[in-house]
Amino acid sequence: MPSSDVPGVNDSSRRAAGRLAAAAIVTYQLLLVAAVVARPDIDVTHKPVSEYAIGRPGWIAVAAFLACALSYAALAAAVPGRTARVLLVICAAGTAGVGVFVADPVSTPLDRLSTIGTLHVIAGLSALLLLPFAALFAGGRRRWLPLAGLLGHYALSVVIPPEGWPPRLLFLTYAIWVVLTAQHIVQQLRPTVPPRQQRAT
């Protein structure tokens, strides 16, 4: 994997960014599990992830979204390719917006969304739709994984409630791609130790 073409970003910094990306996305998934435990009143089969940000325990879901945003931003600093980095930065900003702009209840009609709720939808869609393209431009053998997840999301949404399991499985697919990509970057940029020269006899 070639060195970064970002001035001032060396291989060591990219390895650190890759590790941070993987750790942050795992934290995101763990926080989502914590949000589910904290809100047993929410039906995971019919309610979106954003619903967990509403109410007193909502900070757990907000923290999850911000952790995910951090992961995308860190991965942007690690991957090669300017287009992939730009798209990942947009995804990071959109995901942060999902956490900052708390969603309206899922039962709210689209024409009655609040300004904050509208910003939440725009931010969420930007991240959801652009990440597969960021992966394609990032390259690698796993670049098709997020796109496959997105297509699977739409296929599942035809047969089961689209607010429930489809987006959860999609975000899990994105998380797996982040971890695998970050791991690959860290391994490829690991410093090589030159073989010891044999002592002259």
Rank of each mutant, 00 (worst) to 15 (best):
A53G: 15
S126K: 00
V44Q: 10
R82Q: 10
A92C: 10
R112M: 13
S71P: 02
T95Q: 14
V106C: 03
A96R: 10
A134I: 05
A123E: 05
T108K: 00
I122S: 10
V102A: 03
I54A: 07
G94A: 11
A61F: 11
S71E: 02
G99C: 11
V98L: 14
L131I: 06
A74W: 01
L130T: 07
G55Q: 06
R112L: 15
H46G: 05
V49L: 12
V121K: 10
I122Y: 14
L130R: 06
A92P: 01
A67R: 01
T95G: 00
A74C: 12
F101C: 08
L87Q: 03
A67E: 02
A63V: 10
R112P: 03
A78C: 11
T108D: 00
T95Y: 02
H46V: 08
P109I: 13
G55W: 06
L66N: 03
P105F: 08
R82A: 14
V89L: 14
D104Q: 01
A73Q: 06
G58V: 12
P105C: 11
G58K: 01
G94T: 05
V86Y: 01
V102L: 05
A63C: 10
S71K: 04
T45V: 14
V98Q: 03
V79K: 01
K47M: 15
